[in-house]
Design a binder for these strands. Structure first.
Lengths: 182, 182
DNA sequence: TGTTTCATGTAAGACGTTACATGATTGG
DNA sequence: CCAATCATGTAACGTCTTACATGAAACA
């Protein structure tokens, strides 16, 4: 249920339309909380109905500018300080690892190598983003976005190392004994 | 759409009932692909209708034993080798970091410290699991489960380090200049 | 006989994705 | 005048969660 909090957060220091917010989702929040246009417009209506947002202006083409209400800010603060609620993590990468023995030996290593390369690629992409970042810009989103970016860098580095480690382990498993696959 | 592949994978080297499979989900796959009873029974019916599974035996209390068909095995292999389809990741932890300035300064550090401690706690839990693992058991799930476990260990370690790094960064930001929050 | 475990299912609702539909305004 | 951009919405469908419903069999 955090799409609503993402919207509240984006409206803390500006008013914006659904269209504006979508652009923010597709840039700043793309890797943290992706959302579709369909979802954003629907949730904005619901948030306004619930009194967490209000329409403070209308523009051309039916544009509606939304602003955070006091109730909305309170709810945002409540959520931010709430340390509970680890959402259940699903990983189809790890799920594949569980069943990797179903593949013939060459394909096992191929898959793990692919994972490592993919992680390395995403790491390189993120590095490029960091090096291109406009540090002159001093908004909340760029400053804290950099912290999220650092998470991504560390995560992709870890993932690559892990995949290479796993490939080695599986290779040695095959080398050490006869084939144990299905 | 990977619940179905989890079910196919679990049925590679045994037949099982929905009830049996639920136990596997709650133990082996709990941290990788959680599923509810409701979901499992529904998906089993659909998979049998689609010909990927078949009922090979009935037991007391309406028990139905499912087995993988050739079509099912083929589909599982296809999915395992398919390197595409990174699912979009959502992280409410990182989302909170984006908006952390909305909190008063003490609470910012408190939140990050909480993240670090939580990661450390989960790391300790996983370590305990690893050290208690029955290495005599030589199934696919324990062997590959250990690889997934290693991922968890590395991930939680990384998360703790990152949270402590972020806390330091934010603390220095506040110390260096005047308060910049909303 | 009564409790626990085994065993399967349905229903309602939240959340997310994809696709479709519509039209005003701006700028070249 | 034409294309791109701005701007909002709806509908269908799939997945996941929570809660409810039912009952047979094992065991003490």
């Amino acid at each position: 249920m955090s799409l609503r909090h993402a919207l509240l957060g984006l409206l803390v220091d500006r008013t914006a339309s659904g269209y504006d917010l979508m652009k923010l989702f597709d840039t700043s929040l793309a890797h943290v909380w992706p959302a579709t246009q369909s979802q954003v417009y629907g949730e904005l209506t619901r948030l306004a109905d619930a009194g967490l947002l209000e329409v403070v202006g209308q523009g051309p083409r039916g544009r509606k500018d939304y602003a955070l209400t006091d109730t909305g800010l309170t709810e945002l603060r409540r959520w931010l300080a709430d340390p509970s609620a680890e959402q259940p993590r699903r990983s189809d990468t790890l799920l594949r690892v569980f069943f990797i023995d179903v593949l013939p030996p060459e394909q096992r290593l191929e898959y793990l190598k692919h994972l490592a390369d993919q992680a390395a690629g995403r790491h390189a992409d993120l590095r490029k983003v960091r090096d291109t970042l406009d540090w002159a810009e001093e908004g909340r989103l760029t400053a804290n976005g950099a912290i999220a970016l650092e998470f991504g860098l560390r995560f992709t580095a870890m993932q690559e190392e892990w995949a290479r480690w796993a490939a080695q382990l599986i290779a040695s498993r095959e080398g050490g004994t006869g084939a144990e696959g299905s």
